[in-house]
């Protein structure tokens, strides 16, 4: 008798609990945290040529973080009961941390933006330094949401929060590059030639920073997959699913090749002085990070549990 003659005749699988609303939410908080960090770096360095970028990102961060939780509430089966999160909190649940972080962070972000726009340097710097841990935790906790749902082997790894933070930086810088480039192209006409050259140099530098962060991201993903493939059967199954299974086109094709390798070549290769190449790379990076959220959230729930 062959060993392989085993058929599952009947079993029940329930619908996927978390849909792409959650992935989208991860994407938006990531963008927000990434742009906040860039903004604070610009404010702290205090150099004049960093000012415009510091201002753009100071608005982006709270704006994106007001959009993000809309996804969360839309995902609830009982959206009108969202206030239960604050009234009946549970300190062992990462979602509880999230609800408070998601309230505190935009408030702080708005105050910070006001400080930046009214040119009050010292309070902006202090708020920025205080805000970085908040921005990191508002996105880092989303990694814990996945990592602490122990049923899903694709999520339940110690690398998850760090992967989320690093990919947030990548997509956040990408967005800043895109917006700064738009400003440079169309809204920066009355600046002198010299200023424009300086702005361009800054955008190109940002893009290079993005490429280096991408390398760190790729290393984290590599180590995560390697461990998945050598761990227990569920983890192995999850690793195969994204490497060679149904999610391979998205993971290998979009996330790794289109969203990481090609942008890295565009930004660090012979086209590194071209504004178009840098903007294309930033768009691709954001597509790649969005695909990563999809692969993680949906792919993670695809390995059968029963």
């Amino acid at each position: 008798m062959e060993h392989g003659d085993i058929n599952v005749v009947y079993s029940v699988e329930h619908q996927l609990p978390l849909v792409m609303y959650i992935g989208q939410y991860f994407f938006f908080t990531g963008l927000s945290a990434g742009s906040f960090v860039i903004s604070v770096i610009a404010t702290l360095l205090g150099r004049k040529e960093f000012k415009p970028i510091g201002k753009i990102t100071a608005v982006l961060a709270p704006a994106l973080l007001i959009i993000a939780p809309i996804n969360l509430i839309a995902d609830l089966e009982q959206p009108l009961r969202f206030w239960h999160l604050f009234l009946y909190y549970n300190w062992t649940s990462p979602i509880t941390y999230g609800s408070f972080l998601l309230t505190a962070y935009p408030v702080m972000g708005i105050i910070y933006a006001v400080m930046v726009y009214t040119n009050r340097q010292t309070p902006a710097k202090i708020l920025g330094i205080l805000g970085i841990p908040l921005a990191v935790s508002v996105h880092g906790y989303t990694g814990f949401i996945l990592a602490l749902a122990k049923a899903r082997s694709l999520w339940n790894t110690a690398a998850m929060p760090t992967i989320f933070l690093v990919s947030a930086m990548v997509s956040g810088i990408g967005l800043v590059v895109i917006i700064a480039a738009i400003r440079w192209k169309w809204f920066d006409k009355d600046a002198t030639e010299e200023q424009r050259a300086g702005d361009k140099k800054l955008i190109l530098q940002l893009a290079q920073f993005m490429a280096y962060t991408l390398m760190l991201d790729l290393f984290l993903i590599f180590s995560d997959i390697l461990v998945l493939l050598t761990a227990h059967s569920d983890a192995y199954e999850a690793g195969l699913l994204i490497l060679t299974g149904n999610f391979a086109p998205l993971f290998v094709g979009v996330e790794l090749i289109l969203g990481a390798l090609i942008p890295m070549i565009l930004v660090l290769g012979p086209t590194r002085k071209s504004m178009t190449a840098v903007v294309v790379a930033s768009i691709l990076v954001n597509i790649g990070v969005y695909a990563m959220r999809y692969v993680m959230v949906i792919g993670g729930q695809t390995v059968p549990l029963s």
Partner: peptide, 16 residues
């Protein structure tokens, strides 16, 4: 009290 966030479904290893 349940708000339907479905995090419990995602966390349970038994799909029940």
């Amino acid at each position: 009290r349940c708000i339907g966030c479905k995090y419990c479904i995602a966390s349970c290893p038994y799909d029940v």
